[in-house]
């Protein structure tokens, strides 16, 4: 008998299971693993938003098609993941840049709602293309990390028992590597300086000779690459893969980005973790909230953030003096 369970905390509507330590640790781990994927999606959103002020609603679908490509190369043809994943990422980046150049840029100049409509159109097209090429039924998930039942670190050898899967740790390491590389690229390279200058003041960026259009393409390329990586990790994490893999994940990513204020990289990471934890802990805590309501929770998070603290959790007030 767990000590906690004997405490008179039995609140109506609250699950008893919540007081089981090993269960809670597991929920936190799951939340943080999904959260890492949401953080990657949020990073994609942020990278595009910072320079263009647009949200790419097709980001998730672009990731899905990248992940399905990995499936075709590695699961179907047996090519190792270390070849297929970088290849899919590289291809997504090229496609992302081309889409930005051909479909988004011409509409962007006119301003208004056009870009939103174009990304929604892309959402539908890519989703349908996935369904046509790979079928509407689930296929074998991609598993770049070991995914057998025994592939895990035992941390507490029970009771209470607690173990973390290798794949979960792999997801966290991937996120850390992506953030690290992104930081290096943005803070330590000329290209990154150009990107940040465009984000800070597009017109002045042009006036010092920074090719703004190419920076916007760079943003879309990076976002597309990260989106594909997120989709691969999500497929591994959930053990599922079909043409709708990321349809909901984009919303969690947007919620995470909203938490981070839409323009902050650390904000996106923390936002992803928060959304992941909320998604895994809230239904376990309150039995009247089913886990199928996670989409609704994402919606609530977005609305709450925008209403209460539109600048996000890190809330850096704009540093501009005139």
């Amino acid at each position: 008998m767990n000590l906690l369970q004997t405490l008179p905390w039995a609140v109506p509507g609250v699950n008893d299971a919540f007081f089981d330590l090993s269960y809670v640790l597991q929920l936190v781990t799951t939340g943080l693993a999904n959260g890492a994927v949401y953080a990657l999606m949020a990073l994609s959103v942020v990278i595009v938003y910072r320079t263009t002020g647009h949200m790419n609603f097709a980001q998730g679908e672009m990731g899905t098609i990248g992940c399905l490509l990995v499936f075709s190369i590695s699961v179907e043809r047996g090519v190792p993941y270390w070849i297929s994943i970088p290849a899919a990422i590289a291809l997504s980046m090229v496609v992302g840049a081309v889409l930005q150049r051909t479909l988004v840029q011409p509409v962007e100049r006119r301003g208004g709602m056009g870009v939103v409509l174009v990304t929604l159109g892309l959402f539908l097209i890519i989703n349908a293309v996935d369904a046509v090429i790979w079928g509407a039924d689930p296929v074998t998930p991609v598993t770049p990390f070991p995914s057998e039942a025994g592939d895990r670190f035992i941390i507490l050898d029970g009771p209470p028992q607690f173990a973390i899967r290798y794949s979960t740790i792999g997801i966290w390491i991937t996120l850390a590597v992506v953030v690290g590389l992104l930081w290096l690229l943005l803070q330590r390279t000329r290209l990154g300086l150009g990107y940040r200058a465009v984000a800070a003041n597009p017109e002045s960026a042009l006036l010092v000779g920074i090719p703004k259009d190419r920076m916007l393409m760079l943003g879309w390329a990076l976002a597309a690459g990260i989106g594909t990586l997120a989709a691969v990790l999500f497929s591994q994490k959930t053990g599922s893969l079909d043409f709708n893999l990321m349809a909901a994940v984009i919303l969690y990513g947007l919620a995470a980005a909203a938490l981070g204020g839409f323009d902050s990289i650390p904000g996106a990471v923390v936002g992803g973790a928060v959304v992941g934890l909320v998604e895994s802990l809230v239904p376990a805590f309150f039995s009247f909230i089913g886990s199928e309501l996670s989409l609704v929770m994402a919606l609530v998070v977005i609305v709450a953030v925008l209403l209460v603290r539109p600048q996000g959790i890190f809330g850096k007030a704009k540093v501009v003096r005139v």
Partner: peptide, 19 residues
């Protein structure tokens, strides 16, 4: 596939009209 393609047509028409 026809059903999926009709989704794609929506998307394509949406983009086309914007352009």
């Amino acid at each position: 596939d026809g059903t999926a393609l009709s989704t794609a047509v929506y998307g394509a028409v949406l983009i086309l009209v914007v352009f």
